[in-house]
Design a protein around this nucleic acid. Structure first.
Length: 466
DNA sequence: CTAGCCTTGACC
DNA sequence: GGTCAAGGCTAG
């Protein structure tokens, strides 16, 4: 891809939307906002807003309210300290390397977006309808002995009884809606959602997610410098052993009702495991950075939109990280031979398993690690294309931030392999296509009354179709 | 006061 | 010597 040095200038000024003339005081802005910011800081100007400090700042209205204009300059990340106290002209300041890095990142992202077709509208060409119709739905994974023959492992730290609440009740009412926050400090991270006039930020993104530049990376003495946000994602990640124990406890509880009649089908067991995994996914999201700042409505919309992608990623990442070739590692810790699974599945399910396995192979070849899976989960969750979001801008900002973080991480850990990020995005496209097919399949099974009732899985299946 | 253009000078 | 983000200048 050819590099055009003036490609930056195609962007719009984050303050007023005018044409960008270059990097000024920390980020790409237009000439007039550069001048305005300089005059304001150099002359220590104090403005007053005649309205409610919420004036629109765009190219035509930027002169109307300097107070709101300056607030917006700070909000988008213009740096006070880039204005020189001594007024010395020319030369370079400490932000030089930052501008350089930002240029490289922007260029790389642009290239990757163009080449990988990452955006959802460009991906998933096989989604649902046409492809699904070609695969005749033929029903069941036969109730076969291979799963039942493996004793359920013993749960450690046994969990107490299970309830099956709906997702809404799992997401507690959030007393402060996102837009009501001024600042929400979280670890080293600050998510800024309203105007404020003192922030520290290198290259603030549109959502206003700010970090202290000294705290961008973890300080591991050996090995690659891991971006701090990746460490935060890892911290949010659920513990595999806990999930295993919860699932086993749930299955054992369900088991008490089985013996009276006959064993449930393998498919029903799989649904129960998926259902329990969904609970853990909701719990993960609910307690995760950024997500817990959203309104409950937005939380529900995001989860209803991406549950199957997260569910599949959970299964697939387990195979990549802990699995053995030729076998399927279940969330319970049980291992079943893939050939057994495939031979008992109908053609639709067999084809889904086949495609899933191909994705596992791809990701295994890439040696995708826990850090990358953790980032990908956030990429999936914060999907700005979801309809009717209340805080679309914030969600879009998180998405951009996570993309940048994942790109940085891949460059840190495998600089010799430049296309890693693009490969990961391509795998994500595959995952999206596959999850859509899987949803269709599950919905068919649900309509045939094959999916066990009163489960989160069913709530999710309904959500997108209602 | 605004904003477009000019000058400067450290860094590559 | 070229680049480009600082500060400076000035008509409107």
């Amino acid at each position: 891809m050819e590099h055009r040095p003036d490609a930056d200038l195609e962007e719009l000024c984050p303050v007023c939307g005018d044409k960008v003339s270059g990097y000024h005081y920390g980020l790409l802005t237009c000439e007039s906002c550069k001048g305005f910011f300089k005059r304001t800081v150099q002359n220590n100007k104090k403005y007053i807003c005649a309205e409610k400090q919420q004036c629109t700042v765009d190219k035509s209205l930027r002169k109307r309210c300097p107070f709101c204009r300056f607030q917006k300059c700070l909000l988008v990340g213009m740096r006070l300290e880039a204005v020189r106290v001594d007024r010395m002209r020319g030369g370079r300041n400490k932000f030089g390397p930052m501008y350089k890095r930002d240029r490289a990142l922007k260029q790389q992202r642009k290239t990757l977006m163009q080449t990988s077709g990452f955006r959802r509208e460009l991906s998933s060409p096989l989604c649902s309808s046409s492809y699904q119709r070609d695969l005749a739905f033929t029903g069941d994974l036969q109730p076969d002995p291979f799963l039942h023959s493996i004793p359920l492992p013993t749960a450690q730290n046994d969990q107490t009884g299970h309830q099956c609440p709906s997702m809404c009740s799992l997401l507690p009412f959030n007393p402060l809606s996102a837009t009501q926050y001024q600042f929400t400090s979280f670890s080293n991270w600050t998510i800024k959602l309203e105007h404020t006039n003192n922030c520290v930020s290198p290259l603030g993104s549109a959502a206003g997610i700010y970090m202290n530049s000294d705290e961008l990376y973890s300080n591991t003495p050996q090995g690659p410098r891991i971006p701090q946000l990746v460490m935060e994602f890892l911290r949010c990640d659920p513990d595999e052993l806990q999930l295993r124990n919860k699932t086993i406890a749930r299955l054992k509880q369900e088991q008490t009702g089985w013996n009276k009649h006959r064993n449930p089908s393998t498919f029903s067991l799989m649904c129960l495991m998926a259902d329990q995994t969904l609970f853990s996914i909701v719990e993960w999201a609910r307690t995760s950075i950024f997500f817990k700042q959203l309104t409950v409505n937005d939380q529900m919309r995001l989860l209803h939109s991406c549950w199957s992608e997260l569910l599949l990623l959970d299964i697939i990442s387990r195979q990549v990280l802990y699995g053995r070739e030729g076998s399927l590692l279940l969330v319970t810790g049980q291992e079943v031979e893939l050939s057994d699974v495939a031979s008992h599945a109908g053609p639709t399910l067999a084809s889904l398993i086949q495609r899933g396995q191909e994705l596992v192979d791809k990701l295994s070849m890439l040696k995708v690690d826990r850090q990358e899976f953790a980032c990908i989960k956030f990429l999936i969750l914060f999907d700005p294309d979801v309809k009717e979001l209340e805080d679309h801008r914030f969600i879009e900002g998180v998405q951009e931030q996570v993309e940048e973080t994942l790109l940085e991480y891949t460059l840190c850990t495998s600089s010799q392999y430049f296309g890693r990020f693009a490969h990961l995005l391509l795998c994500l496209s595959d995952l999206r296509a596959l999850s859509s097919l899987t949803e269709d399949y599950l919905y068919c099974r649900y309509q045939s009354a094959d999916v066990p009732c009163s489960s989160l899985l069913i709530e999710m299946l309904h959500a997108k179709r209602s």
